[in-house]
Design a protein around this nucleic acid. Sequence first.
DNA 1: ATCGTGTTGAGGTCTCTTTT
DNA 2: AAAAGAGACCTCAACACGAT
Length: 254
Amino acid sequence: EGDRQFATTLARGLEVLRCFTPLEPMLGNKEISVRTGLPKPTVSRLTYTLTKLGYLRHNMRLGKYQLGSAVLSIGYPLLASMSVRQIARPHMKELADYCNGSVSMGIRDRLNMVYVESCRSGNGITTLPDIGTSVPIAQAAIGRAYLAACTPSEREALLNQMKVKQPEILRKFKPQIDRGLEDVRSRGFCTSIGELRREVHAAGVPMRRSVDGEIVSFNCGVPAFLLKKGQLEDDIGPRLVSMVRNIEAALGMH
DNA sequence: ATCGTGTTGAGGTCTCTTTT
DNA sequence: AAAAGAGACCTCAACACGAT
């Protein structure tokens, strides 16, 4: 609003692409119009253009659109340029095997954390969280760890966005967010006790990279029934912290 | 025939560039 | 510097089309 450098049409086209989710992979113009609040003709022209460029595919039978291969092509270079993934992977795999769970690395996208790397224990009790999966910051240990590593002004900005866009979620999880801040400060990690998925308990640890200042955050999630009492707090959390310290040290050598 | 959905056309606004 | 021109974009109304 009032920003003369802001290319509105481009933003709208990208908003159209963001309507597609794993749960709603196929959408028609009308549905996109409702989700974005854009007029039908505008959506019609945007989907037409995005289809021409390969960002959308049109299913003739259903008359609906789905994301096209070009979307993956523009996303992949980001993953490929994150050398921290290669360095972290063996550390993550080792911890995942130790605790029969999964260990993931994520970066922030708006009010979510997006997984950019994920490892799972060999026995495969847990499902492997896919790269590209996103989880809400407020509800997940990996997100609250991220918040704890933000500067006060970054954190305030994010909390304000939550207040506007997801007030009920923020109200429900504000205590856990505050608790997470304290926990990360005092012992290096925070936890989520089935707050995102009821059957999974998780610990989260942030890592602020000195190179570019971007925060990368890690979690370790374990099925609740596999955990001994106090194990998340006394064993897995501290191990996740030392894993991150080891990754930091390994990064320092590069 | 009617409804829901998608497309087309025209008019309007805004901004930038060219002309006077 | 002001006026005119050009282009991009948005949106309303009308039209098209298939499903019920």
